[in-house]
Amino acid sequence: MIMKDTDKKRVLREMLFARRFEERCYEAYVERNIGGFLHLYPGEEACAFGVLEAAKPGHDYVITSYRDHVHAIKSGSDPKKVMAELFAKETGVSKGRGGSMHIFDVANRFMGGYALVGGPFPLAAGIAKGIQMQGGDEICICFLGDAANNQGTFHESLNMAKIWNLPVLYVCENNLYGIGTRIDRSTAVIDQYKRVSGYNIPSAQEDGQDFDKVFTAASKAIKHVRGGNGPYFLELMTYRYRGHSMSDSNAYRAKTEERMWSDRDPVIMLRDRLIVSGALTLDEYKEMDTAILDEIEDEVIRYATESSEPPVSEVERFVLADNDPWVKGGVK
């Protein structure tokens, strides 16, 4: 599948927006407007954008881990409502009950961020089972990090997805660290796509910094899954610029290693490619960036700041269903 430069310019803007959004989250955390744990995405943008650009966001189901803001936004969530969730407001996507690690936007088929490493593997297979029963052409896309593959759910879910031919695409964002432990110190096989061969599931490994390469690899993967051929596993080699979460001092990585990755920044790589092809000028990019920063400040942060917190009187709501008639039973 070939993508036009005009579309790539749109994607570049979206990726830059995601970068600035996450950087602004960092500031808001320092300002104490965001609490709890906060896991940021800068450095890995080409993964979410490359895959979801090849998918049908809002139609296909997406599920992921706690590093979830950008996946939700690319799935169709209003960034204002994502930021409002981080600010613990009633107008947040999860009504202020979820927080950074639990962004949910079911109307856009973003089925949530989950905080147990590896937890979404079987949930994604289950969503795919639901799709299969409904008979639609949707697929489920599950984004998780490399370290999740050391959980039993990885193996259990791949096995079930294969034997039941479920329409699920597992995307491994391999950022080389499980919290602060480097992959070669925690994992017997470094190349994650090789681990999947034990389940007879097709897989591929791609450069997760290069939007075009991710898009091409994801298009192939999605065609496979949507075509009724069962699960697929796509490994994307990437890197997160910040620590695992805000409480991570990030002291365990060499500066030379960090520089090697930031020299291949996914946003800058896409930008430069568009400049070389003549579709974009540096001035245009700068204007784009300024407009994004203004939008985030004037609209996103303002909305999150001005929104109300959920009423504390509702703290016991949503534990169970409201007034479920079957609770009372009865003879039919």
């Binding site: 079987p122 994604a124 639901g130 759910t153 079930m160």
Partner: peptide
């Protein structure tokens, strides 16, 4: 695979199964 199939059932229930 108790955790796996229980999680799969839960995920399916999100879609009305």
């Amino acid at each position: 695979s108790e955790n796996g199939y229980t999680g799969l059932g839960i995920g399916a229930s999100f879609l009305g199964v």
